[in-house]
Design a binder for these strands. Sequence first.
DNA 1: TGAAGTGTAAAACGAACGTTTTACATTCGG
DNA 2: CCGAATGTAAAACGTTCGTTTTACACTTCA
Lengths: 174, 174
Amino acid sequence: MDTTARLLAAAERLFDRHGYTATGMDRLTEAAGMSSRTLYKHAGGKAQLMARVLGERDRRFLARLEVRRVDALFAALGDWLRVEGSRGCLFLRARAETGGDAPEIAEAVAAHKEAFRRRVAEVVAADLGREDPELAEQILILFEGAAHAAVYRGPEAAEAARAAAATLLQGARR
Amino acid sequence: MDTTARLLAAAERLFDRHGYTATGMDRLTEAAGMSSRTLYKHAGGKAQLMARVLGERDRRFLARLEVRRVDALFAALGDWLRVEGSRGCLFLRARAETGGDAPEIAEAVAAHKEAFRRRVAEVVAADLGREDPELAEQILILFEGAAHAAVYRGPEAAEAARAAAATLLQGARR
DNA sequence: TGAAGTGTAAAACGAACGTTTTACATTCGG
DNA sequence: CCGAATGTAAAACGTTCGTTTTACACTTCA
């Protein structure tokens, strides 16, 4: 595992579990097992590091959503929640913690959410056999809701959302 | 407007707009127009202050959800989002930022989410004419999803969720 | 009249913040 | 074999953190 990968993995873990602002650079260097000099050479700074973490997470998350059915979308969410834990969307949290300052973070969040929206619309279109922007928006809301309700209702929220999505899809089918 | 109300209003505004950790006590004293001595006498400390902010917000938010129909639930959410802005649920954000430390905050969040869940279940039961825990869970997820999707999709997310909820309710009705 | 209560302004506490720097190893291709 | 490149360890930069303290002014009411 090379330096950059070690750094990004440690940073994602700490930012996700303890928050962006609350995580100091010294904890980061310790967790990543490197000096602060190396860290700054690789990452540039704290906000840039967070932006790269979000970029990696975007790749990893969207890779799981390469499916053809709405059902599979929520199955993938359930898997993710069970593997990664439920602390709410890291992108929205990063945006909220930095309040719109830190442009690199705001951009990473916007890019991810747009890619996510597009993916959901694609899956809905594939499953339904035609485009349906209204339904896609509803499915997106169910997905986002399950991800956040899971924080206090557990990962089973993904299954409840899957059932709701099936009902909506059924209603749209004729 | 007395000292405590001024303090709580300023604290809610700053915590919501810039985050809990990123908001320093000096900004708080300045925004509330009081000395730090007075602030600490009234609030006890930063975490206690956040807990009291959340308590007030819980009251204010749930008061808006005193309705009899699921439709009205999402109308109320739309109003809230348009008035207060969309930065994601302050309770979940506070929980995530403190990562489970700060017991007073964790308790305030848990209490709010349980009260919220109960309220949704009540409204669903009143609208449907009978209890339906599965449907209530789906409506809760739609609500939570609209609140968070609104951050990047705008307050219209509440209307999309309302339409989805109507479909689910219709499906449960016979 | 005087003590208690409530407020302000400002300095100070040690600790932690993000970042840079200094000084010194180690690897490795030309 | 020499000079980049890449790493470490550790101190230091000035700033800000949450909190406490000191010293003083004003009201309220027994």
